[in-house]
Amino acid sequence: MPRESLIGRMYRKVFGYLASRFPPTPWSDLTRRTVETVQRQVPRSHAEKYELKTIWYWYPLYCLGGISFVAFITLTITGILLGFYYIPDGTIEYTFNQEVTSRAYQSMQFIMNDIPFGFMIRGMHHWGAHIMIAAVFLHMMRVYFTGAYKKPRELNWLLGAVLMIITLLFGYSGYVLPANDLSRAAATIGINMTKAAPGPAWLGQFATMLLFGEPDPTGFYIIRMYWLHVFVLPLVGILLMIAHMALVWIQGVAEPH
């Protein structure tokens, strides 16, 4: 019997690896059938099928990814509303009484004090962010402790890890925006840590100029963080979230068992 060629073996190895994780399934046909079915069925989970009552207290933990997604939608809506009034200009100005201020800070004061229910919108944005980050942390712990990152879901775990870092960056760039004392302190720490990025010196300098636009926090960093917060991170984040949830749909939820 002739031995298989090297190319053939490599081909089988690579495509075998991929096919065991992403089996060739006619997704477009299945989607069309699902859409055209009148009575759609959500398949029962393993735990429901075998009535494994003993781990019922784990069920809420399987909702944490969904909770962070709902919190993200809340943040999107309230963020759009805040965007109507927020001015991303952190340049230091002085009032007639020689008080320090900036247009970003003034717009924050306007949102909090003058706009009807502006403080509620900002409050929901603030607390929604805290809840989303907490939910993402807990979601990661649940996936870790139930071993849901194992084959065939390695890629989805990596996507989730990137998404968690994006969530943290969302949080950081978000609380830099109000141009208050906390914002300045956070920007100082962030600029110093970015400057000291492990690697050659020019790398840290370049990253600092790219992310903050200045080597010392004078106020220009606000517009960079704003663009990250409202364009770059949402774009990358939403694309990755779609991929994350599509993979959950394709590979199925890792069952508690």
Partner: peptide, 16 residues
């Protein structure tokens, strides 16, 4: 949460 604990903006960023 936003109704009960309003996030206060605090003083402006001050280089001094």
């Amino acid at each position: 949460m936003s109704a009960l604990w309003t996030p206060i903006v605090g003083p402006s960023a001050n280089p001094a």
